[in-house]
């Protein structure tokens, strides 16, 4: 039963995450609304014939940001002290699970038991430290508190409980987990509890900010600095939108007509606002 829930939650995670990615990727193309960290192609005369930033540069920058949380480091160091261990802890816990599952097939139990435990505990410790720090900040700092919705005050303790529980099962039932879960599929009670919590987490994850962090870098979003050229894919997509009706109701809009008409033909006089 518990394994059924666990694998179900993995499936749920994959589907929900895919749906969110799809929502992001299939969003209508938006107008060019950019922010620059420094010089852009507009510093050149006849910029339209010149190249914009390369995808490679953006990707590299994204990797560095995600690995080191550079922006938090530079702009909100107090937060970073807790956020960074939390993130590094989470990244290594994800890797730990992958290594563990992979190791189950090829690496000896003794090796896993010593190094796996050490790795797991360090990662858990880092994450736990981050969680406690963030939670205390969120509770004590009035400015942070008034904007933080209640759900997050449940989220952090819940994560802490999962970690404590995970620590307990790895510390005391490591061999059993290995045998029971991976070879025989009969987890013990401690592992069962861990799997149950992990399932809840997996169901929550697609709705969390972790996903947002990735979307931020979605190519066409944050750094969508691609100009529209005649005959391009951008032009094709925009043209589709221009055929849609304008639905806004203020009198000056001329609701009901297509965007193309509303923008280009001013047949009726434009009324003044209130």
């Amino acid at each position: 039963m518990i394994l059924f829930i666990f694998y179900g939650s993995i499936l749920f995670f994959i589907i929900a995450a895919a749906l969110r990615v799809r929502r992001c990727v299939s969003a209508p193309i938006h107008l060019h609304w950019e922010l620059y960290k420094g010089s852009s192609v507009y510093e050149l005369t006849e910029w339209w014939g010149k190249t914009h930033n390369t995808f490679g540069e953006k990707l590299w920058s994204m990797i560095l940001d995600l690995l080191f949380l550079r922006e938090f480091y530079h702009r909100n160091r107090n937060f970073w002290y807790f956020l960074y261990p939390f993130h590094i802890g989470i990244y290594s816990l994800v890797l730990w699970h992958a290594w563990f599952l992979f190791g189950a097939k090829v690496i000896s139990i003794e090796f896993l038991s010593i190094w796996g435990r050490l790795w797991g505990h360090v990662a858990t410790g880092l994450t736990f430290f981050g969680i406690v720090g963030i939670f205390i900040k969120r509770v004590k700092d009035e400015d942070l508190k008034i904007y933080y919705p209640p759900i997050h005050y449940l989220k952090w303790p819940f994560l802490a409980v999962i970690l404590l529980e995970a620590f307990y099962s790895v510390q005391f039932y490591f061999g059993d987990i290995f045998e029971d879960l991976l070879l025989e599929f009969h987890p013990n009670v401690a592992t069962k509890a861990h799997l149950l919590f992990a399932s809840v987490l997996l169901i929550y994850l697609p709705f969390s900010h972790i996903m947002q962090l990735f979307f931020r870098y979605y190519h066409y979003l944050r750094w969508d600095d691609v100009p529209n050229v005649r005959g391009s894919e951008i032009e094709r997509r925009i043209k589709e939108h221009l055929e849609r009706p304008v639905t806004w109701s203020a009198p000056h809009i001329q609701s009901g007509k297509r965007w193309r008409e509303v923008a280009s033909k001013l047949e009726c006089p434009i009324t003044e606002g209130k």
Binding site: I29, H30, L31, H32, W33, E34, Y42, E46, W48, P227, N228, V229, R230, I234, E235, I238, K239, L242, A263
Partner: peptide, 14 residues
């Protein structure tokens, strides 16, 4: 910048 994506065809002017 912003109007770049409403100027189509011959209206996409340098």
């Amino acid at each position: 910048v912003i109007a770049d994506r409403i100027l189509m065809d011959e209206m996409n002017f340098p």
